[in-house]
Nucleic acid binder design. Structure first.
Lengths: 267, 267
DNA sequence: CACTGTGAACGTTTTCACAGCA
DNA sequence: TGCTGTGAAAACGTTCACAGTG
């Protein structure tokens, strides 16, 4: 999952559950595809399949938005596209700044999926003076010094952080001070932000680690017993006090420099 | 959240909850940072703060792994690093292939966070013959024709898909046929895979859409009433049958070509 | 009749609060 | 005393199953 919120505990008013909100973009994607193929209506069953969920869940989700379907028929594709877009706030366009134009930042700048939804890359910002002025995805990179001015002048409220981990909190603080209230963080760090600022994070290596966990499980099962993989390692029995110093493999491939830092490339 | 599983409904045996598994990498990252600063022990409170969760959750999570702490003291950093690494399967190294070497694929290939955990980029694969042989991040790109051979020869079980959406399912099928059992999907499509294959997805534009939703909420609240933003749009009252054709703004910025497809660049 | 919309059952995750131990 | 480990409660999310309706 890749999800770090910062939210008032109980959302007041006609609250749509977080889990539902997180699936709306999925439905929207599936609906957009249907719309392009000029399909006029879908059943919850069909749409659910296209979105990779089950139909009960989809219907429950839609029930939070209102009654947009027709019993016996299904949902009108165009109408639903519109309703979901509106609910997600995609009927307006959102200027976005990307900070940290390394490999990842550049990839994000070039990513077509942003523009096709309501997002517009308003500026690219990097700390490296040598990058200043260089165009990436047709947009000239600007220096970090300009950060506050860029945000104010363009009325930007969403920022993307693609810097190395070491720079992320500092960049975050400046973004927030400049008026940003939503942050998408690609740097492998926990950002601390004041109340009222939303942070979502995407951590590439975390996703792989979760896969590795399940992969390991599978490997274990193949052998037969769901037992600890035989010949693994002697886990220090009770008191772990001084145990670690000798824990075999504990330090194996864990090279010191590099550790957590690199987001992709020093920005 | 970026999360698409394919799992046996109820995990048998000493099952660690999915939610806990998803947080282990977070704890590991925080612990690794402490380890590098030679901090010997942490309390659940400190570690929780560093990982961005609350301490009750962290202690519950750890309780699924076993009793690795010392009451009145806390957790031994090195020992916990080892235990969590082992639980996640990071004490072995995992060869990984990346398919689709566009901007994003290249960024992933260069990403330091993979190597620093147990992951090794075993091969880069792209459909473009012109890319074949070109080194990216020091690794020569190989042509898709070699896909099956690469996977078999290297015993790869984890694949990363960074192709455009249109190619993703096809690539996925070949990966699975070749023996891959875990996939990290960056293409904005739902992949269908047989049982026993895990898929996790990361969709950059979905994350932004979720932020936009909350951002819109904030904007609405500022004005005062948690009511529908005034002067929004006339939602067709009851029967939505023919409504969409005229739904204002429904087709606003939604340019036809581009729609869902571009993962970043035609691989 | 085929479908949506939804209460109610169920399962999972989070949080609370405290007993138990070093 | 200061912490962990954990039952029990509460919150949240999913699934079931069917009543309601175009």
């Amino acid at each position: 999952m890749a999800t770090g919120r910062t939210h008032r505990p109980a959302t007041r008013s006609r609250g749509i559950p977080e889990a539902t909100v997180a699936r709306l973009p999925l439905y929207l994607r599936a609906l957009t595809a249907l719309s392009e193929r000029s399909v006029p209506t879908v059943s919850s069953e069909e749409l659910a399949t296209a979105a990779g969920v089950n139909s009960a869940k989809l219907r429950k989700d839609f029930s939070y938005l209102g009654s947009y379907g027709t019993r016996g028929v299904g949902y009108d594709v165009e109408y639903l596209v519109y309703q979901i877009s509106r609910e997600l706030g995609l009927t307006q366009d959102w200027p976005v700044v990307i900070v940290g134009i390394g490999n990842l930042g550049a990839a994000l700048a070039n990513y077509g999926g942003f523009a096709s939804r309501g997002f517009r890359v308003a500026a690219l910002i990097d700390a490296d003076p040598a990058m200043a002025g260089k165009p990436v995805a047709g947009i000239p990179v600007q220096h970090t010094d300009e950060l506050e001015k860029i945000i104010t002048d363009n009325g930007v409220s969403i920022g993307v952080i693609a810097t190395p981990a070491g720079a992320a909190q500092q960049v975050c603080d400046r973004l927030v001070a400049a008026g940003i209230t939503s942050i998408l963080n690609f740097a492998p760090t926990v950002l601390s932000v004041p109340d009222g600022v939303d942070v979502r994070k995407v951590d590439l290596s975390i996703e792989l680690q979760i896969l590795a966990f399940h992969e390991q499980r599978k490997a274990g099962e193949e052998v037969g017993a769901p037992e600890e993989v035989a010949g693994a390692v002697p886990p220090p029995p009770v008191a772990p006090h001084r145990a670690p110093s000798g824990a075999p493999g504990a330090d194996s491939g864990r090279q010191g420099p590099d550790g957590d830092v690199p987001a992709v490339m020093p920005a």
